[in-house]
Design a protein around this nucleic acid. Structure first.
Length: 308
DNA sequence: GTTATCGCTGGGATGGCAGT
DNA sequence: ACTGCCATCCCAGCGATAAC
């Protein structure tokens, strides 16, 4: 590729050489500044001039002066170098977690119960990284991860997906939830599924991740298998529970806790049931440094707290 | 990329010269 | 004898080139 025509490309070194000579007004001083021998610098400038087809410096043995073309080009060359250097600095800052952005989709229950502490700790450690939190139900979380709307999700598995990786980070046990004056609230501690038979059951709809798990329990009483009342979101369910319309079954994290005196939670046994809260990422795709930091913090804070 | 070396030149040092 | 001017000499330091 040598010879006539575009034989050699302009490189960053050519730009650096040009700007250094222009600033120093001397090949020798510029070469010292670039940690280069003077002849090497002369060659860089010659190559550059040849490549551009323009003489950049008028040099005598005593003086180096920018030509009109060189004077005109200098500000552009300086800006190019500045842009290059600041782009490199930006990448380094992101890599060092001093700047960045991470977005996470979680179940509302996790957003409410676990994320405030995690976010506070994260902001302390990585003040330059902004965090965007989206809450959605289990299928919504999975969809947001698939569509790359978020870096990762935090939810129970809605349905298997080969394009997604699920990493269980905590277990969230199911329990009975009812008003404190309900007969089932007289005892404390674990309660058996079959003890729920015959009570008015308020169930969650099929679009939640909770419903199919409950349906999977062996020997589920009929009133739980076919609920008399079915609602689609937890806020509605909570209102009905507080009103004393019936009982329900929820994971502990989904248990409303701003009515501490109105509602009680008793863990369910025979069998025990829990949902795995998973960290959901796109299969085979690496996380950004910011997202990786958040992932590590989520695992550190959640991992172990709910595990058996 | 380097080192060794080239030829060139600005400017200090020097000295010749004319005017006073 | 002194002063001001200018031509010449010399060399440090310059960028370019050759050789590796």
């Amino acid at each position: 590729m040598k010879g006539a025509g575009p034989a050699m490309n302009v490189t960053l070194k050519h730009l650096q050489a040009f700007v250094a000579v222009a600033r120093e007004g001397s090949f020798t001083r510029a070469a010292r500044r670039l940690a280069l021998s003077q002849p090497a610098l002369t060659i860089q400038i010659n190559q550059f001039e040849e490549e551009l087809g323009v003489r950049l410096f008028d040099r005598t043995t005593r003086r180096v002066m920018l030509t009109d073309n060189g004077t005109e080009f200098l500000p552009t060359a300086e800006r190019l170098l500045d842009d290059f250097e600041s782009a490199i600095a930006d990448v380094r800052e992101v890599a060092q977690r001093r700047r960045g952005r991470v977005s996470v989709a979680t179940l509302p229950s996790i957003a409410l119960k676990a994320m405030p502490d995690i976010l506070a700790a994260f902001r302390d450690t990585y003040p330059g990284i902004s965090v965007h939190l989206h809450d959605a139900n289990a299928s919504g979380v999975q969809r947001r991860v698939s569509r790359k709307e978020v870096d990762f999700g935090l939810a129970s598995m809605w349905e298997p997906d080969a394009d997604l990786a699920f990493e269980a980070v905590m277990r969230d046990p199911f329990g009975l939830v009812c008003r404190a004056d309900h007969p089932l609230a007289e005892a404390t501690g674990p309660v058996r599924w079959r003890e729920l038979a015959g009570h008015t059951f308020l169930g969650l709809g099929h679009d939640t991740g909770i419903r199919p798990l409950v349906q999977s329990v062996d020997g589920l009483p009929d009133n739980l298998r076919q609920p008399e009342v079915e609602v689609s979101n937890i806020a509605t369910l909570e209102g009905m529970l507080v009103a004393g319309l019936g009982i329900s079954v929820l994971p502990r994290l989904a248990m409303p806790d701003h009515h501490p005196n109105d509602l009680i939670f008793r863990p369910l046994v025979e069998p025990e049931l829990a949902r795995d809260i998973c960290l959901i990422t796109r299969q085979g795709r690496s996380l950004s440094p910011a997202a990786e930091s958040m992932r590590d913090m989520v695992i550190a804070r959640l991992g172990g707290s709910g595990a058996p």
